[in-house]
């Protein structure tokens, strides 16, 4: 693995640990603050055959406090999900951008957008969309890229895609790429896109 990616991997792991530790602290704090201010019930009464101890638990569980607590907690989880969806560690961004600049020249226009997505604009006016996954949950592979070309018009797209080790879907070339193939397969993608002749 490239040292930039190694760095990014280390950063990601340690950030994840810090975030989870912080989440636990926030969880404890939220738990404390939501239940220490007094219980606000809905006015629901438990069935009469409940033992007394259970009735008290029932009052605590079925209350506005619990609803608010769950809202707050899901907000925290949502914030964590958004954070891990949106951002790629910066060494990985520089690795990706450097690979494309090395391939297509220093002046190539590359857009980096939220959601770990890149868009590389080629000289021909076409572009390649690149999406990065930091860690694939199913296989445990790090930094897997998804390449998607812009929509193309042309004949025999499928056979051109196959000849460049890709598949075509909805008139776009698509493929999954490991981090160590980024440079060469981006080259193949550009070559494949250049060899598409518009349908007459």
């Amino acid at each position: 693995m490239d040292c930039l990616l190694k760095h990014a991997q280390g950063l990601y792991i340690s950030r994840q640990r810090i975030t989870i530790a912080t989440l636990m602290v926030i969880f404890a704090f939220a738990f404390h603050s939501f239940y220490s201010l007094g219980i606000h019930g809905f006015g629901a009464t438990p069935p009469e055959w409940f033992p007394v101890g259970w009735t008290e638990i029932f009052d605590v569980v079925v209350s506005l406090n619990t609803v608010a607590f769950f809202l707050a907690f899901s907000l925290i989880v949502f914030a964590y999900g958004l954070w891990s969806w949106a951002f790629l560690p910066s060494p990985a961004v520089s690795y990706t951008v450097a690979a494309f600049r090395g391939l297509f020249g220093q002046n190539v226009r590359i857009q980096y957008r939220i959601g770990k997505r890149f868009r590389v604009f080629l000289e021909s006016g076409r572009h390649i969309d690149v999406r990065c996954r930091i860690k694939e949950a199913s296989s445990g592979d790090w930094f897997v890229y998804r390449f998607t070309s812009c929509p193309l018009t042309g004949n025999n797209l499928y056979s051109i895609a196959l000849r460049h080790g890709m598949s075509s879907r909805n008139r776009r070339f698509t493929t999954w790429i490991g981090h160590d193939e980024l440079h060469h397969r981006a080259l193949l993608m550009a070559k494949a896109m250049a060899s598409v002749t518009p349908a007459s």
Binding site: S138, G165, S167, T175
Partner: peptide, 20 residues
């Protein structure tokens, strides 16, 4: 060296998609 399951879910699925 890894598990064949992770091989299957990662690389092999991608290669299958690319028709190899």
């Amino acid at each position: 060296s890894g598990k064949s399951r992770s091989l299957y879910r990662g690389v092999l699925t991608h290669m299958k998609e690319d028709g190899m």
